[in-house]
Design a binder for these strands. Sequence first.
DNA 1: CTTCGTATGTCAAAGTCCTGACATCGAGCA
DNA 2: TGCTCGATGTCAGGACTTTGACATACGAAG
Lengths: 149, 149
Amino acid sequence: MRQGDQVGPLDTAVGYVLKQAASALRGAMDAALRPLDLTVPQYSCLELLGQRPGLSNADLARGAFVTRQSMNVVLQGLEARGLVSRPASAPHGRQLPTELTDAGRSQLQEASRAVHAVQVRMCAGLSAEQQRVLVATLTECARNLTETT
Amino acid sequence: MRQGDQVGPLDTAVGYVLKQAASALRGAMDAALRPLDLTVPQYSCLELLGQRPGLSNADLARGAFVTRQSMNVVLQGLEARGLVSRPASAPHGRQLPTELTDAGRSQLQEASRAVHAVQVRMCAGLSAEQQRVLVATLTECARNLTETT
DNA sequence: CTTCGTATGTCAAAGTCCTGACATCGAGCA
DNA sequence: TGCTCGATGTCAGGACTTTGACATACGAAG
């Protein structure tokens, strides 16, 4: 077996530490959002809508890295709780642009604060420059994998 | 609302790009392992056992970031396919040390090659130093979140 | 020695998510 | 105009994972 074809020790494998960090982040966010009765996908949906109102179900699904079907049930739950609103009929094509309600904006504000606290805890000890480099590198990694070429 | 309590634009949020990269990696690994009839947790289990033989179910679950129950069904599936072997009774306590079979080692070799290719593609354009920094930073982030203090 | 606490493996149930599929709608083109 | 093609929203089905719970086994403290 040639040396170059192996993954190598776990502690030095980019994929492994990436998964480790993502798993830890997921767990911490889950714990932080539990008091608000929000799951991570639900929060992602609210955050997306807060920054870019009028997104369709498919857009939200892509932004939250889930399938359209999963996002659909998330939206139905949020709509039942009065946090988001969707028009009964589509103004263009089949897209149903979703908007935050006042209650949704209020809930998002609390949730955003909780998630921000988690992110601060995660980045403790990291300089602003280190964070910027991290974001740039991760973005590059994601782009490399999603390129269709 | 104070500015410091918000998450900020998605493209610059560490948590968001981390999730994005992890999602892309998961998808790419899934596609790479599908020809071998292996899921990502199954591969993780094999890789763990290849590097540290004799790990128990609970150890494997922690290493693969899943619950003991999930890892248990993974192990049962791998055992049914003859890729791993577990003793009928526990030599110490209740831990059942798992070992790779010859078939398992062979399968792992192919899978490791496929995953390594994905990792290379992901890190295209990144220098060795950049990768080292990335691993160190992500490890630090994970440690910050899992600390109980 | 006894007792408590922690860790492990396993079972059952629930929830979550994805895969596959279908009908609908707009855009581009002959 | 009539057509195909891609994208969207939605419905069932199944696979996977987690939560909750229980019995067991070792180690430390009394």
